[in-house]
Amino acid sequence: MQDPVIQAQNLSLTFQTNDGPVHALKDVDLTIEKGDFVSFIGPSGCGKTTFLRCIAALEKPTAGSLTVNGLTPEEARRNRAYGYVFQHAGLYPWRTIGGNIRLPLEIMGYAKSDMADRVQHVLKLVDLEGFEKKFPWQLSGGMQQRASIARALAFDADILLMDEPFGALDEIVRDHLNEQLLKLWAKTGKTVGFVTHSIPEAVYLSTKIVVMSPRPGRITDVIESTLPRERPLDLRETPEFLALSHRVREGLRAGHSYD
């Protein structure tokens, strides 16, 4: 058995605010194996984004331990362990799509010739070939988000962290991107951490669904998906899919997420 890619033990994060402490995360234990597609689902304030940010070393846990590839999150970041995708594509309007994808490569000091190859490679992965010289305003919202995924893939990180990447898109575009994301995952074998509000999205994409609850932010259920790896969109009408969705909903209810 390989070492887990991400391991959290008794992880807690408390923000000190003027209204007293806020327990964003409390005693979270979670293990993510290589190649897992893990969704974090729960209502606002359950700490799913905070957990992702801890993995990315954008937040510092106040207690417990967290390792990424066996290292501290800061060390893992320095080793370019992960690519991060935000809810908003956040492409620089003054850079072309290719220029935006080159941004991390420039910062990390890749050679010029290498950059060009990598840009072509990831544009192909997200199905945006031929858009290298276009500017962000010339692309639809869905295409922009694909470009931002390409940007996160450009430097070969093994882990892809996605914080509600499709949250701002309409459902039709979202379905399409979910399908594409699964293909991408199958092709690249990356470990994915995916934050979402949507039960169908979580069930459709994941090998492991982490159900979370607020006040304090904690994990109420971890569901290993029984769905096959090959997942056409109409899989979502099968009894197996509905059963999993039901279990996620039960988990949310148990955590008083609907109160």
């Binding site: 970041r77 690519g83 809810q87 908003h88 956040g90 941004l103 910062i107």
Partner: peptide
């Protein structure tokens, strides 16, 4: 630039000058 754009650069371990 909004906070998420600054966060993005942090995930690349970008320096202040960068």
């Amino acid at each position: 630039p909004d906070p998420s754009q600054l966060d993005l650069l942090k995930t690349y371990d970008a320096s202040g000058l960068q």
